[in-house]
């Protein structure tokens, strides 16, 4: 299983140049059954990452471009009256896929946003009184532009919390950029990618991740981190228990990706910026948090 995982990583790294950390974060997010928020300026490869990920993992993929006039029904689906059968038939929206790319999620109105986010949390949608299960696995990659850009509706903190991680792509380094410029067209590359995994394989990975061993000593460390965010004057509000759970499951997935069956403090530290940065308002550099807490 871990061998498949290495293939997955290798393939994605071949398509997305110079972003190993982001790739692992995204992968950890999927394996930890969380959703990923990628925040960055347009054109740094957010969408490409989502595409490559879906392709490589062999997941059924759809995409919604969020705009200010997007309605919840555009996401969830709608019942349409069919004359032949004289009945309303539900036409599932793009959310009924194993991987959903919600592009520029902060361009839509809060109403559309909350429709997506509720579905993300509950893994089901209720349309016209009928509850429908979303497929398994279900994974959302949302991208958003930095909120200072015009025409954005920033996601409220409570909804940001629904994302397991938020990462930033960042500009590629010169070597990676050179490779990008001189290489093939990205779309061609993506279409040429073979799935290295399938839905069943991903579910197996998710199951394995949950079994990664967490020692008392590590829980001590996680708790020390949480306690620090709650007690330090540096943070307006501390990390929630849900954030703690998120941190742990992300760390487990990270350990699995690293080929280990136990979580180390290093794993926690690796995922901490992704897990904590969007949950700690005005926190500054998440590295400060890591450095402030001693490993017990």
């Amino acid at each position: 299983m871990t061998r498949n995982l290495q293939n997955v990583i290798a393939q994605i790294e071949g398509a997305i140049l110079g972003k190993p950390k982001q790739i692992r974060c995204a992968l950890a997010c999927v394996i930890a059954r969380g959703h990923l928020l990628i925040e960055d300026v347009p054109g740094v490869g957010k969408t490409t990452l989502a595409h490559v990920l879906a392709r490589t993992l062999g997941l059924q993929f759809s995409r919604i471009q969020f705009t200010s006039d997007l309605l919840p029904a555009d996401i969830l689906g709608v019942s349409v009256f069919e004359r032949d059968s004289n009945k309303f038939r539900f036409h599932p929206g793009p959310i009924f896929s194993q991987m959903l790319l919600a592009d520029e999620v902060n361009r839509a109105t809060p109403k559309a946003q909350s429709a997506l986010l509720e579905a993300m949390e509950e893994h089901q949608v209720t349309v016209e009184g009928e509850t429908r299960k979303l497929p398994e696995p279900f994974f959302v990659i949302a991208t958003q532009n930095p909120s200072h850009q015009t025409g954005t509706y920033p996601l409220p903190e409570s909804q940001l919390d629904r994302f397991l991680m938020r990462i930033e792509m960042g500009y590629p380094d010169p070597v990676a950029e050179r490779g990008l410029l001189s290489g093939m067209d990205r779309r061609e590359i993506i279409s040429g990618l073979d799935p290295q995994l399938d839905a069943a394989g991903l579910l197996e990975l998710q199951r394995l991740a949950q079994k990664v061993f967490v020692s008392e000593a590590l829980l001590d460390y996680v708790q020390a981190l949480l306690r620090h965010t709650r007690e330090s004057a540096h943070y307006a509000q501390g990390l929630s228990p849900r954030a703690g759970l998120a941190l742990l499951s992300a760390a487990r997935a990270w350990a699995l990706i690293d080929g280990r069956n136990a979580v180390l403090p290093e794993d926690v530290q690796s995922v901490l910026p992704g897990v904590a940065s969007h949950r700690l308002p005005m926190a500054g550099d998440p590295a400060d948090l890591i450095e402030a807490v001693a490993i017990p």
Partner: peptide, 9 residues
């Protein structure tokens, strides 16, 4: 060892 430095690092 830095206080936040894990054994592997």
């Amino acid at each position: 060892r830095l206080q936040h430095e894990g054994p592997l690092d």
